Computed example of a mutant assay.
Amino acid sequence: MEELINSAREINTKKLVVLCRLEPGCLGPDGAEHINTFCQIAERALVNLNADVCHWFLAPRLDKSLVEIQYSLAGKVLSRDKAVKFIGSFDQDLDDIEERFEDKLTQLINQYIARKRQT
């Protein structure tokens, strides 16, 4: 996790860092065996998604007490309201960005599961 935080600090401070914690079950009953690999692969596939204003990080959600989506800017955690305002300053809408993210994530999950079944 420390590595993740340090990486986030290196990202341009003009971008919203979005950390999405994924439930292992999203990959099926054996998802716990695949979640780390999936997060790494999916993160690379999300590099260009709203890259002008966001940088995406994915991590397994192994601790249910942690929020599913966390926003930060320049290493400081933001509330969703502040993230909405920040994204709004670029004439963009966080709800739209998150919808595109969820669509892409669903596509990546489906592709990963389909490949996993082939092996």
Results as ranks from 00 to 15, higher is better:
Leu4Lys: 10
Asn6Gly: 00
Asn6Ala: 14
Ser7Phe: 04
Ser7Ile: 12
Glu10Gly: 13
Asn12Cys: 15
Asn12Asp: 14
Asn12Lys: 11
Asn12Leu: 13
Thr13Gln: 11
Thr13Cys: 04
Thr13Phe: 01
Lys14Thr: 12
Val17Trp: 06
Val18Arg: 01
Val18Ile: 11
Arg21Leu: 01
Arg21Tyr: 00
Arg21His: 03
Glu23Val: 00
Glu23Phe: 00
Pro24Cys: 09
Gly25Phe: 01
Gly25Thr: 02
Leu27Trp: 01
Gly28Cys: 06
Gly28Arg: 02
Asp30Gly: 10
Gly31Ile: 09
Gly31Ala: 05
Glu33Ile: 11
His34Asp: 11
Ile35His: 01
Ile35Asp: 06
Thr37Phe: 13
Thr37Asp: 13
Phe38Trp: 01
Phe38Arg: 07
Phe38Gly: 02
Cys39Asp: 03
Cys39Trp: 02
Gln40Thr: 15
Gln40Asp: 11
Ile41Cys: 01
Ala42Glu: 02
Arg44His: 03
Ala45Lys: 15
Ala45Phe: 02
Ala45Ile: 03
Ala45His: 15
Leu46Trp: 09
Val47Ser: 08
Leu49Arg: 07
Asn50Ile: 11
Ala51Ser: 14
Val53Tyr: 14
Cys54Asp: 12
Trp56Gly: 09
Leu58His: 03
Ala59Pro: 00
Arg61Gly: 00
Arg61Gln: 06
Arg61Tyr: 00
Arg61Asn: 02
Arg61Ile: 01
Leu62Met: 07
Asp63Leu: 07
Lys64Ser: 04
Lys64Phe: 02
Leu66Asp: 02
Leu66Gly: 03
Glu68Val: 00
Glu68Tyr: 00
Gln70His: 03
Tyr71Thr: 02
Ser72Val: 05
Ser72Ala: 08
Leu73Tyr: 09
Leu73Trp: 05
Leu73Gly: 08
Ala74Asn: 05
Ala74Val: 05
Ala74His: 00
Gly75Lys: 08
Lys76Thr: 10
Val77Tyr: 14
Val77Asn: 10
Val77His: 15
Leu78Ala: 09
Arg80Asp: 08
Lys85Ala: 12
Lys85Cys: 09
Phe86Thr: 04
Ile87Leu: 13
Ile87Tyr: 06
Gly88Ser: 15
Gly88Met: 07
Ser89Phe: 03
Ser89Val: 06
Asp91Val: 07
Asp91Leu: 10
Asp91Lys: 11
Asp93Phe: 11
Leu94Ala: 08
Leu94Tyr: 05
Asp95Gly: 09
Asp96Val: 15
Ile97Ser: 02
Glu98Phe: 09
Glu98Leu: 13
Glu98Arg: 08
Glu99Ala: 14
Arg100Asn: 10
Glu102His: 07
Asp103Leu: 11
Leu105Glu: 05
Leu108Arg: 07
Leu108Gln: 01
Ile109Arg: 02
Asn110His: 04
Gln111Arg: 05
Tyr112Trp: 04
Tyr112Ser: 01
Ile113Gln: 09
Ile113Thr: 06
Ala114His: 06
Arg115Met: 12
Arg115Asn: 13
Lys116Pro: 02
Arg117Asp: 05
Gln118Thr: 04
Thr119Cys: 12
Thr119Asn: 15
